[in-house]
Design a binder for these strands. Sequence first.
DNA 1: GCTCCATTCTGCATTTCTGCCGAATGAGGT
DNA 2: ACCTCATTCGGCAGAAATGCAGAATGGAGC
Lengths: 306, 306
Amino acid sequence: MERMRDWDDLRHFLAVARAGSTLGAARALGVNQTTCARRIAALEAATAMQLFERRQAGYRLTEAGARLLALAERVEQEVRALEGALEAERRMLSGRLRATTNESIANAVLTPFLARFREAYPRIRVEVTITDRALELARGEADVALRAGRQPEAVGVAVRRICHLPWTIYCARDYAMRHGVPTSRAEIGGHAVIGGEGSVAKIAGVRWLEEAAAGVEVVSRSGSLTNMTAAAVAGIGLAALPCMIGDREPALQRCFPPVPGIGGDLWLVVREEARGVPHVRAFLDSLVADLAAVRAMLEGTAPGRD
Amino acid sequence: MERMRDWDDLRHFLAVARAGSTLGAARALGVNQTTCARRIAALEAATAMQLFERRQAGYRLTEAGARLLALAERVEQEVRALEGALEAERRMLSGRLRATTNESIANAVLTPFLARFREAYPRIRVEVTITDRALELARGEADVALRAGRQPEAVGVAVRRICHLPWTIYCARDYAMRHGVPTSRAEIGGHAVIGGEGSVAKIAGVRWLEEAAAGVEVVSRSGSLTNMTAAAVAGIGLAALPCMIGDREPALQRCFPPVPGIGGDLWLVVREEARGVPHVRAFLDSLVADLAAVRAMLEGTAPGRD
DNA sequence: GCTCCATTCTGCATTTCTGCCGAATGAGGT
DNA sequence: ACCTCATTCGGCAGAAATGCAGAATGGAGC
């Protein structure tokens, strides 16, 4: 035989051999069944050997194929070793990186993540700026930002949607015991309501609550979601909050499922120039992997898209 | 980093690391330089690591890249081992195969090849039918044929051109000493000429010689090129022969370089149905590899296409 | 200082690969 | 006996990878 034309065929060979079918292998590899079948066919053609028997029930290794499997596994083992080394290499990356977000997201997402990230990449120094102002990444004020709400618009940056951020109405558990819980928008009328101030007052969820409570006294106003959360925890009244925040407070409970129409999205914004830099990539990759967990948690409890 | 997306990137990585440039690697791999550059870029993007420094003089490994090289070489080693096993596996192929060709090609090409082939694939039984008749492969009279001349036409077969077969005029060395050597078509007039008979008389080269020698006695006629060769060796006169045959006779010498216009081609014909069968493939692959040597020898001495 | 050469990169055309869809085929369960 | 399910295979359209040609760059040799 000539030299192996495409080492990637071995990856497919292993997957098919293990799954026992091109379909199963395709699922495992995240590709189409046809692709697996074709790569096996290509490998067999290149080597002029029959590696599998085609059956209705799937692909079964021939004797020769089975003998080859062991060898292919050794190749795989070395590839895994290389991947491991690559990972180790990567953990030695160093550099400085400036991230920014608002207080709520910092508390719920970024800060917990940073703890893990520092473990994995001790030589990457991350400086976090927590502010309500949206720093201008394009001007070099920061490299990475996490933003909530509508899709951020800016030039010179790459924007990526992470997940949906459902909102709903929360109240303290002891508030619920004392005053009961509204189970629909109509029942909000009789309750004390915590409102927003400044830019916070403009948030869809906060407006929704104030409008639902039309005529009722707003007992507290705050320009910070964190503050509003604290007010709710203190049992002052109902507050509209992102589930990402409200669910993290053991003292709070949802009044009803996430409200359609008041949710936002979580966006990851990266300065275009910083995007390709290895240690920034490492940060982003880790962050995105970490956010997958947040996403899973939220989507599990979220309604459909609103 | 995620899992390695494409193991074949490692092959390119190795090639570039060794060649020191994407261009050199591309040559080694038989692909385009751009492809190498792009696969390295893809690998670096996937791993978010800089593996090479781009310079005008070429690609140079970074420190991290150099550390990875050793690992990649281990992968390669395992792939080579697998290739070896595959080859060994292949040598255990068994089966029967019928080949056919004419006497000249059998002597010059097929028989010498068969000796080597039997060593490599002891369990494949090859039956050779040497005949001037063109057996009908499509009818199952044989699986593989080697043919000389014009492109064979037939249905149900795959035809592949191996190389050009130059012809020229030969005479025995001692004939040359006794009678001199014609150095052009015009000088043939005074020499004794060996002609063909039957289908051999129709071959372009044989006709060319007889026409060049118009009026001169044809001292011998034979229906077999082998016979004509023997006659030439015996010093009877000049003979038109394919260089493939004439050059193999130490007792013969070329009168002049290959004559444009009288050459043919060597064709490999395979019965369509037999093409995919492993042991036939093994035979064909070996034969083609072997013929590359024949080709190199002939093309080295051949004129341009005629 | 000049040319020549090997190299990299970019934009475009083409080939190749991949995914998707539907049909066919058996096996297994009801 | 029939349905359902998992599987393979073929054709087709879109996507991705590849090759090609040209421009730019910088070093080596004359």
